[in-house]
Amino acid sequence: MKKCISIVLLIATCITYSQKKTNGTIYVEHPAITTVEAMTQAFVSGDENKVASYLADDFKSYSGTTTNKDDKGMDKAAFLKTVKTWKDNIDYPSIKRSKGAYPDALEYKDADQKDLVWVQTWEDVKGVQKETGVKIDRPIHRLFTVDKNNKIKMMINYSTSTVNDEINQSYADRKNGEIYNHHENINTVRKMVHAFENKDFDKAYSFYDEKATFMDINSIDIHKEYTLAEQKENDKKMFEMFELVSMDQVGYPDYLHYELDDPRIVQSWWKIRVIRKSDNKNIVLPMMFIDTFNDKGKITSEIAYYSQKILEAK
């Protein structure tokens, strides 16, 4: 039995080792990497002639995320035109290695790869589109082949098109919903606020969905969301420290019903007058609420904007 087990283990070990096979060498430093990064910086600086000097005559650029099976890529002449486009349209441009990343140069053993070096990079593309003001800050992964003359023969880009889509859409005006200064959801916010003002807490909380979330910009974790039960406890602590005198509307609330994604939001501004119980100091606290509603007219989330420093001032 022991012999059988030993034979099985030996076979398994042999199979494991036989699954590994080298097919070339990976370099962290290589002339091809130098060429690729030099071309990239020439592109960023808008130096078309310098970019051209790094490209092979039969250079092609491809999108690695296209779904077009007949994509023939961009030739050298077309790619060089993008250098000027970049220079003319992007402020504060940069393409730099992503944090913790570095390029690899790969020399494969395959016969059809003997005159090529593959370079792969991970970088961050940054800038601001001049006309639309859209900020560009996105990662990009690129594959290059570099020929025996140290010229870039091919480039494949892998990146999201989200930023480009936003830039293209920003050239034209587009309506995205409607804004109201009178609406039932505005009425709900006012009723909720004045219920708090009159310490009718059951009524105040009745305007919220039972799964509503709350955010306070003064929280240590600005992304912290509180449940309705947790917010009730937060409010209780606040009322233990402060006597609420009044909550007075400033200007008028806005109700925004957006077309994209269909959110329903009320923005409202208030002066909240309180007395700090520890020293009887009268405090006027400016506050802004952003309340999001569902289609049933219930508040599903609320963000409170105010300065904690005002409440702490001596």
Rank of each mutant, 00 (worst) to 15 (best):
V128P: 08
A111C: 06
E123I: 07
K69N: 08
N164E: 10
V125A: 13
K130H: 07
F43P: 00
L143H: 15
T132L: 01
I136L: 09
A111Q: 04
Y180C: 11
T66F: 13
I136K: 07
L143T: 13
I136F: 07
G100K: 05
R97G: 13
D137Q: 10
T121E: 07
I90K: 05
N150E: 07
I140D: 05
D173Y: 13
Q120H: 11
S45K: 14
P93T: 12
N150L: 06
Y108E: 03
A56H: 03
D91Q: 09
K96E: 06
K135I: 15
D124Q: 12
Y108P: 00
E48I: 09
S53R: 04
R142Q: 11
I156K: 03
G127W: 06
D75Q: 04
I167T: 03
M74I: 14
Y158N: 09
D70V: 10
A77Y: 01
S53W: 01
D88R: 05
Y108C: 00
K69Y: 06
I167F: 02
P139K: 15
M154V: 04
P139A: 14
K76D: 00
S63A: 08
S61Q: 11
G127Y: 03
D112N: 05
D112V: 06
T82E: 12
N68P: 02
K151R: 13
I95P: 04
Y62D: 05
D75I: 01
I95M: 14
N149C: 01
T121P: 02
K126H: 02
V134F: 01
K175Y: 08
F79S: 00
W118L: 13
N157G: 04
M155Q: 02
V163N: 03
A77R: 05
S159D: 13
K72F: 04
F59L: 05
K148L: 02
S94K: 11
K153V: 00
A101L: 07
D147K: 05
I156C: 00
S159G: 10
Q41R: 12
G133Y: 11
E178L: 13
S63G: 08
S161K: 15
N181E: 14
K72Q: 15
Y108H: 03
R174Y: 12
